[in-house]
């Protein structure tokens, strides 16, 4: 039954020849939770997903489903639905036959099969598509058929491998909102892999960020953005200017534009007692202020980014900060003052 499942990855490790693809990765997923495994290509996220699905055996570590060890179970008995990156729809079957395939494999009667397939298709907004050929579907429709096919077997955990990466940007935005709405409405537990932080943030309750086979940080999207535990996390998520500073456990002091400025600081537990740190200045935490009330600087770059403008401001010989503003009147070469307007400021190890 979806909604009560709980998946647990316990020190999963997988080695390909000499390379550690996944290195002792542990992750807990509560029932009804949507978790994104995010990372650059080669970070081990897909390998992790394939170990959960059972397509790839771990060298060590375990996969638990609702308290049962399923590490050695074959994919077909795990009962996870999986949505593949290229959808893997069976080209010789109709939409309806594709969706009903998992039920057919379970020996469900033909009438029940088609009724449940129709429900699943309705759930993804494709009512009546059942007799259509796979070749006649658009990319977005294929993605939704793949989702319906996985949903129809009522998986304890739904697995999705880059489900949005084959869609063009506009379709992608609408599809990811739909995806989250569908998963929420059905109360599903899902683990999905993506390299795109916008996809991850839009769909997931929690994001697990991976690099070189290791988990860097797991948390809600805002948490990863506002309180990165390391420079890697801060660099991967959003944009940031790193400024060296001293940390005393509660406050961080940075030396910029010839003066010392102190902010309330937020650091992860591992940073206690460390003096030299990097302060993470996010573009949205900086603003233009009246001259004399902030760091004086020169605008070196101005770029329109949709609703806002992104400016780069050189505040001293070593430091160029990036800031977002709705103010459109600032030009390249202008003398400006900038200030941190949102505290606490995150600090990470150098």
């Amino acid at each position: 039954m979806p909604g009560t499942a709980r998946l647990s990855l316990d020190k999963l490790t997988r080695r390909f020849e000499e390379k550690l693809a996944v290195d002792s990765l542990s992750l807990e997923i509560a029932s009804g939770e949507l978790v994104a495994l995010m990372g650059a290509s080669g970070s081990g996220k897909t390998t992790t997903l394939r170990m959960v699905a059972g397509y790839e055996p771990p060298d060590s570590g375990k996969v638990w489903l609702e308290g049962k060890d399923i590490t050695t179970r074959a994919p077909r008995v795990r009962g996870f639905g999986m949505v593949f990156q290229h959808y893997a729809l069976f080209p010789h079957m109709t939409v309806g036959q594709n969706v009903a395939f998992g039920l057919e494999a379970r020996g469900v009667s033909k009438t029940e099969r088609s009724a449940r397939a129709a429900t699943a298709l309705a759930n993804v907004g494709l009512s009546g598509a059942s007799p259509r050929a796979i070749q006649s579907l658009s990319g977005g429709e294929q993605q939704r058929v793949a989702l319906a096919r996985a949903l129809v077997i009522e998986p304890p955990v739904l697995l999705l491998d880059e489900p949005l990466s084959n869609l063009d940007p506009n379709l992608r935005r609408s599809t990811r909102n739909e995806l989250r709405a569908t998963l929420r409405r059905l109360g599903l537990t899902a683990l999905f892999v993506t390299h795109d932080q916008e996809d991850a943030f839009a769909v997931a309750d929690r994001v697990a960020l991976m690099e070189n086979g290791r988990l860097l940080q797991v948390g809600a999207p805002e948490e990863l953005h506002d309180n990165p535990v390391s420079r890697s996390v801060a660099e991967f998520i959003g944009r940031a200017t790193f400024v060296p500073g001293e940390f005393d456990g509660a406050k961080v002091t940075v030396h910029v534009a010839g003066s010392a400025t102190t902010f309330a600081a937020h650091a992860s537990a591992s940073l206690s007692g460390v003096r030299a740190v990097l302060a993470v200045l996010r573009p949205d935490a900086l603003a233009f202020v009246k001259s004399g009330t902030g760091w004086p600087g020169v605008v070196t770059d101005r770029r329109f980014a949709g609703t806002q403008l992104v400016y780069r401001v050189r505040v001293d010989d070593h430091t160029e900060v990036e800031l977002q503003s709705t103010d459109r009147d600032v030009r390249e070469g202008d003398q400006v003052s900038v200030r941190v307007v949102r505290e606490p400021v995150s600090v990470v190890a150098v």
Binding site: Y55, V77, M82, F90, A105
Partner: peptide, 23 residues
């Protein structure tokens, strides 16, 4: 043949013989 078709079928609960016959 796209290898993920076979994997998808396995993930949906199809046995080896069923996959061979149907996919």
């Amino acid at each position: 043949l796209d290898g993920t078709l076979d994997e998808a079928a396995a993930g949906l609960g199809a046995s080896t013989m069923f996959r061979l016959r149907k996919v």
